[in-house]
Amino acid sequence: MRRISKRLTSTVVRSAVAGAVVTGTVMAMAPAASASHKCDRSQEICYWRLSGYTGGSRAFTNEDYTYTNDYYDNLSPTKNINNSISSLVNYHSSRFYRLCRYVEQSYCLFSIEPQVARPNLADYVWPGSASLDNSISSHTVY
């Protein structure tokens, strides 16, 4: 009986270790969560950290109430997009995006029409003359 118990325990331990190794390998090969938000220029609005469509990028297809939990794709060290966007393109064929100065979709007064590019947001202002550059915190879709 002891011999069976010892073999069974040994087999269970080896299986657990093998399972952990396999799971670890799978997890290591999984892409980063932000990879799904990379700008692929298909039916989305794309933001860039710097003017001229450079620096890290981030894409959205739907509304976002706050950018405080969103980060640029492929940018090291990571950088939050909240109040740090300097250029954008609306690649969507029919959706309008309304940019909001504050989180919770507040003060949404600047619209981006379909198929429109803005290479330098410093060239655009919110009502009241504040620059759009580095001042967008959420958006709506309409």
Results as ranks from 00 to 15, higher is better:
residue 2 R to D: 15
residue 3 R to Y: 12
residue 3 R to T: 11
residue 3 R to S: 06
residue 3 R to L: 12
residue 4 I to V: 15
residue 5 S to C: 14
residue 5 S to G: 10
residue 6 K to A: 15
residue 6 K to F: 14
residue 6 K to M: 13
residue 7 R to P: 03
residue 9 T to H: 10
residue 10 S to L: 15
residue 10 S to T: 12
residue 12 V to T: 14
residue 12 V to C: 14
residue 13 V to Q: 11
residue 14 R to P: 06
residue 14 R to N: 14
residue 16 A to L: 15
residue 16 A to M: 10
residue 17 V to M: 13
residue 18 A to W: 06
residue 19 G to N: 10
residue 19 G to T: 14
residue 20 A to N: 04
residue 23 T to G: 08
residue 24 G to S: 06
residue 24 G to H: 05
residue 24 G to Y: 01
residue 27 M to A: 09
residue 30 A to C: 10
residue 31 P to R: 05
residue 32 A to E: 10
residue 32 A to V: 07
residue 33 A to L: 11
residue 34 S to L: 09
residue 35 A to D: 12
residue 36 S to A: 11
residue 36 S to Y: 05
residue 37 H to N: 12
residue 38 K to Q: 14
residue 41 R to C: 08
residue 42 S to K: 13
residue 43 Q to A: 11
residue 45 I to Y: 00
residue 46 C to E: 03
residue 46 C to V: 05
residue 46 C to D: 03
residue 47 Y to P: 09
residue 47 Y to N: 02
residue 47 Y to D: 05
residue 48 W to G: 04
residue 49 R to S: 12
residue 49 R to F: 07
residue 52 G to P: 02
residue 53 Y to P: 07
residue 53 Y to K: 07
residue 54 T to K: 07
residue 54 T to D: 07
residue 55 G to D: 07
residue 58 R to H: 05
residue 60 F to M: 02
residue 61 T to H: 06
residue 63 E to D: 08
residue 64 D to K: 09
residue 64 D to F: 03
residue 65 Y to Q: 10
residue 67 Y to H: 05
residue 68 T to W: 13
residue 70 D to E: 03
residue 70 D to T: 03
residue 72 Y to F: 14
residue 73 D to A: 05
residue 74 N to V: 00
residue 76 S to T: 14
residue 78 T to S: 15
residue 79 K to C: 03
residue 79 K to I: 01
residue 80 N to M: 07
residue 82 N to M: 15
residue 85 I to G: 00
residue 86 S to L: 04
residue 86 S to Y: 01
residue 87 S to F: 02
residue 87 S to E: 01
residue 89 V to W: 04
residue 91 Y to G: 10
residue 91 Y to R: 12
residue 94 S to Y: 06
residue 95 R to S: 11
residue 95 R to M: 09
residue 98 R to G: 09
residue 98 R to D: 03
residue 100 C to K: 00
residue 101 R to W: 08
residue 103 V to C: 04
residue 108 C to F: 02
residue 109 L to A: 13
residue 110 F to G: 01
residue 111 S to N: 13
residue 111 S to D: 15
residue 112 I to K: 04
residue 114 P to Q: 00
residue 116 V to D: 09
residue 117 A to V: 05
residue 117 A to F: 03
residue 117 A to K: 10
residue 118 R to P: 00
residue 121 L to Q: 01
residue 122 A to I: 06
residue 124 Y to A: 09
residue 124 Y to R: 09
residue 126 W to C: 06
residue 127 P to E: 04
residue 128 G to W: 11
residue 130 A to I: 11
residue 131 S to W: 01
residue 132 L to W: 02
residue 133 D to I: 10
residue 134 N to H: 09
residue 135 S to N: 12
residue 137 S to I: 07
residue 139 H to I: 02
residue 139 H to P: 00
residue 140 T to C: 04
residue 140 T to P: 00
residue 140 T to D: 10
residue 141 V to K: 00
residue 142 Y to W: 12
